[in-house]
Computed example of a mutant assay.
Amino acid sequence: MYPRSAPGKSRHFYHVSDDTGRHCSNGGESETHERAVARAEVALHQQFGKSADVETEVDVDVSEVPTPVTERRADVLATFDDWNPYFGEGLAVEVQHSHENKNVQQVTHDYLAAGFSVVWIRAGTILLDTFDYDTISGEFERDDGAGYSQRTSKSHRHTNCQSLLYDGEHAWERVPPYAHPRGQDDLVTYDICAGQDCELRRVHEPDGSYTYTASDEYGPDFPLKALKNAIIREYDRDPFSKWAGSQYHSAQVEKLLATRPEIERCWGPKGIHEWGRRETLWTNHSDQPLIELRECMYCPVRIVTNHRGRSGHSTFCLYGREPDIDWDDVYFQASPPECDHYLYDEDAIEDYCPKCGATMEAPDTTLRDHTSWIPP
C-alpha cells in the first residue's frame, strides 16, 4: 500500500503490484477485493469528485459511538465538504467478499451513529462491465437494498440490543465495585448493558468520558453459582443456573450484580451479602410467603422482602437491626407497587425508603453504625 495525492484530492493510499507479481494484501484481502475497491473509488469520484474527498481504506472515527471499537475502516469513503442532506457526513462503500467476516449489522450501526451513510456491495457485482454509480444508487432506492442513508435509516435499528432498538439507549447498569476481584487499589468503575443479548460495557474515564468494550476483563471472576445465596427468588423450583439463563442470555454474573437490588457490599468472602436464615412474616391464602425477613450469613444486616407484586419487581429494604414485626403490615400496604428498591440513608437516624416514604422509628444509631466495619 502506497501514499499518493492528486490536484484537488487529499493524500491517501492505493494498492499496486510489485515486480514479482505479489500484491499488497492489506491483511489478507484478495486481489479481487482490491480491484473492486478501485472500481468503487472511480465510481464515487465520477459522482462526487467536485463536492467530496474520495479515498480508500479510510478510518472513520466512532469513538463517541457506544461500540467496542473506536474506528471503522471504510473500503471507500466519500467525505463531503458540507453536510449532505441525504448521505450526511459522507458515504462509505463496503465491498463484501467471500473471505470477509465483517459484522454487517454492527458496522452499519456505527457508520450511521457517526453521521455517515453506508452501502454494502459484493465484489463480483462491482467487477461487472455494467457497474457504475447507478448500481450504488440502486441499493438505496430498493426496499430490500443494502444501502443505508442518514435520511432514511436510524442507527438503533441495526443492533442486537433490544434496549437500544426500542428505547434508543443501552440499558446501562453499574457493576458494583465492591464485587471487583482486584481489590480497592485497582477498582474500575464501569457499567454493563442489561439487554438480553447485549454485552457492551462502558468504562468511566477520569475526564468524565467513556470508553466502550465487549470484554469482561474488568468484571468479577467468580462463577455464576457463587451468586446463588446472594439472589432472593420468590420461588426456588428451578435450578439457579436455569433461572439465571432465563433472566439474561449472556454476561449473567455481571448483569445480576448490577440489576438485583438485594445485592450490597458485605464483609463476607464474596464482598456481597449472602442471605441465610429466613422468617416468613406474611403468607397468602395458600400459606406461601409474601413477606420474608432474611439475615446475612456474615454480618448483622437483614433484609425484608415483599413478594406480593411480580417476582421480578419485589420490594427489598435493608436494615442493620431487627425490624418491628408489626411494622410490615403498615408499610407494605402503603404503596408496594411504587417501591422496588432497598434504598436507605446511611446518615439518617431512622431507616426509611426514599422512594415510597415509609419510615420506621429507630434507636439513636444509624445503619452506618451497624456497618462501620465495612471498608470505605
Rank of each mutant, 00 (worst) to 15 (best):
R265A: 13
V253D: 00
H249F: 09
E169S: 09
A226Y: 08
E254R: 05
K228T: 10
P177W: 13
G195K: 06
E139S: 03
H158I: 11
Y190C: 02
W243Y: 15
Q184S: 14
K154Y: 11
A194I: 01
H156Q: 13
C193H: 02
L164C: 12
R182L: 15
V188W: 02
D236M: 04
Q196T: 07
G183M: 08
A258T: 00
S153R: 07
G208H: 04
C193G: 06
R202C: 01
D186Y: 13
I232C: 10
Y190A: 00
N229K: 10
I231D: 03
R174F: 15
G168R: 07
K154H: 12
A194S: 13
E234F: 11
D186R: 13
H204P: 06
K228A: 15
Y190P: 02
I232A: 06
E199S: 02
P206K: 05
C193E: 03
R151S: 12
A171M: 05
C193A: 03
H180T: 07
R237N: 11
Y235S: 14
K225L: 14
S241K: 12
G195N: 03
V188F: 01
K242S: 09
D144E: 13
L164E: 10
Y212S: 00
R237Y: 14
L257K: 00
V203R: 05
L200C: 07
G195C: 09
S246Y: 12
D186C: 10
K225E: 15
R182M: 12
N160W: 12
V253M: 06
E262R: 05
P261K: 09
Y166E: 14
S149C: 06
E254H: 06
E141T: 04
W267M: 12
Q184C: 04
S246H: 15
S250K: 13
P177D: 12
P223C: 08
I263F: 01
A251D: 09
T259F: 05
K255F: 04
R157C: 12
G268I: 07
C266Q: 05
C161N: 05
S153K: 05
F240H: 08
Y218N: 12
A171P: 00
Y178K: 01
I192R: 00
E234Q: 14
I263D: 07
Q247A: 13
Y166W: 12
C266F: 08
G219P: 02
G145P: 02
D185L: 09
E262T: 10
H180D: 15
E139L: 02
S153H: 06
F222P: 00
D191I: 09
F240C: 07
N160K: 14
S153Q: 05
D238G: 00
K242L: 14
E205V: 01
